[in-house]
Structures are given as C-alpha cells and as structure tokens.
Amino acid sequence: MEIALGVLDMAPDDFWGMTMGEFTAKFDGWQERNGGKAKVKPPPMTKAELDALRDHYPDGGSIKSPKQDT
C-alpha cells in the first residue's frame, strides 16, 4: 500500500479496487518507465518439480495427482 499511495500516487479507492494482477502490472510499468529493469518471468514449472512439491506438501484433499492414481 505504501508503494501505491506514495510512489504511484494512487487514490486509496483506486488501490483497493484493483486486483493484485492489475497492481503488479501498474507497478511493473512504472518501474520500466523510470529506469528499472523489465520484469523477466521465470520458466514454467516442470512436471517433475510439481510432483516434488506435491510430495513434499500434501494437502490431504480429494484431488490426486496422476502419480497417486496407480
């Protein structure tokens, strides 16, 4: 909120009416326009990385990964 109200000079109602994606896009644009680096997205997660996270952080829910269906 400090960035929105201070740095970006937004009205509080505008800030609270935004989604996180909208705010992030606004701030990324501000950074790029003011000499910051353009945002570089990391590559998408591989299936092996996703499976490792699922194994490490099981949620106990009813949705099972294909690995658990066998």
Rank of each mutant, 00 (worst) to 15 (best):
M1F: 04
E2K: 15
E2C: 11
I3P: 03
I3W: 04
A4E: 09
A4C: 11
A4D: 12
L5I: 14
L5R: 10
G6L: 06
G6Q: 06
G6C: 08
V7F: 05
V7I: 14
L8D: 04
L8C: 01
D9G: 09
D9P: 01
D9L: 13
M10V: 10
M10K: 12
M10D: 07
A11C: 02
A11Y: 04
A11N: 09
P12Y: 01
P12D: 07
P12H: 01
D13R: 11
D13T: 05
D13V: 03
D13K: 12
D13P: 02
D14V: 13
F15M: 08
F15C: 08
W16L: 13
W16E: 09
W16C: 05
W16I: 12
W16P: 00
G17M: 11
G17D: 13
M18E: 09
M20G: 11
M20A: 14
G21I: 01
G21M: 04
G21D: 08
G21A: 05
E22G: 10
F23M: 09
F23S: 02
T24G: 11
T24D: 15
T24R: 15
A25V: 07
K26S: 12
K26T: 14
F27D: 01
F27A: 12
D28A: 13
D28F: 06
G29C: 00
G29E: 02
G29Y: 00
G29W: 00
W30N: 08
W30E: 10
W30K: 11
Q31C: 15
E32H: 14
E32N: 13
E32L: 14
E32K: 15
R33E: 07
N34H: 15
N34Q: 10
G35P: 03
G36E: 07
G36C: 06
G36W: 10
K37C: 01
K37Y: 00
K37E: 11
K39I: 07
V40D: 10
V40K: 15
V40C: 03
V40A: 12
K41W: 00
K41H: 04
K41F: 03
P42M: 12
P42R: 15
P43V: 02
P43N: 03
P43L: 04
P43T: 02
P43D: 06
P44M: 09
M45S: 10
T46C: 12
K47G: 08
A48K: 11
A48Q: 09
E49G: 07
E49Y: 04
L50K: 12
L50G: 02
L50M: 13
L50E: 10
D51R: 03
A52R: 14
A52I: 00
A52E: 14
A52Q: 14
L53I: 07
R54C: 01
R54W: 00
D55P: 00
D55I: 04
D55L: 12
D55F: 03
D55N: 06
D55H: 06
H56Q: 13
H56L: 08
Y57M: 05
P58Y: 07
P58N: 05
P58D: 09
D59W: 06
D59M: 03
G60A: 10
G60F: 02
G60I: 01
G61T: 12
G61Y: 07
G61S: 15
S62F: 13
I63L: 15
I63A: 14
K64E: 06
K64N: 01
K64A: 06
K64H: 11
S65P: 00
S65C: 01
K67A: 06
K67E: 05
Q68H: 11
Q68I: 05
Q68V: 07
D69K: 14
D69C: 07
T70H: 09
